[in-house]
Amino acid sequence: MVAEQVPRDGRTRGVRRGLAVAGIPLLVLVVFFAVWEFASKSGWQPDYILPAPSDVANDLWKDRGGYWDNAQTTLTEILIGFPIGLVLGLVIGGLIGMVASLRRTAYPFVVASQSLPTLALAPLLVLWFGFGVVPKVILVVQVVFFPITVATVAGLVSVPQQALVFGRTLGAGWWQLFVKIRVPASLPHVFSGLKIAASYAAVAAVIAEFAGAESGLGALMLRANDNLQTEAVFGALILITAIGVGFFALMSLLERLIVPWHEQYRKDGDR
């Protein structure tokens, strides 16, 4: 009762809020792993069906060199594919966003390209380009460019028209309006596209590796699966997830740095 009356300073409130935000997912995670560990160790399921988290962790540590080699391959595929997809998405989205006639003619094809079943495409790409990095990069590009294209178009279309009118009456040229109004107004949209793309990229690389690869976390996973080394399957899975989450977090960080005015941050801003 008494504690309720004591005015809390800003920092305590900040900590409490931080706990509330980070604490609940963390708690869920801890409970999840605890139940999993118990289910596995109690002999409810054999190890090759459900290895205990501790066994998975152990395997990750013991074979860290092998994991790292394979992770490097997957990371390389993403790090080549992501920038290409980004540039492609910005250029295609930029053109479609700026040119109304392209929105009617070209946009449907862009959408159709995304309806290609990625999984079905993978073996074909391997057949054409071999077991190397190329088919993986192509698939990463394919999944990255689409959300970025859509986001760029949405951004450009949503530009505040009245600011453009204000500029136009003052004789502002196309380039001036583009740089001073259209680009900054679209950036928050582009970043939502980037975040989606970031979480797809790792998945695309792994699926491409499933179709045929000498190394990579997807290849590792497939081999381990064939040999009933289920803890290695889980180990690879955890690393793939970590890469996806890591990329997403990187984009969120960039978003905070580059578009700090974005509505999302404004609401719980400090002023």
Partner: peptide, 16 residues
């Protein structure tokens, strides 16, 4: 029109 400057109901201020 070279003499015109506009103002609108929504301030149309740039949030960045």
């Amino acid at each position: 029109n070279p003499y015109v400057a506009y103002m609108f109901q929504q301030a149309a201020l740039l949030e960045w």
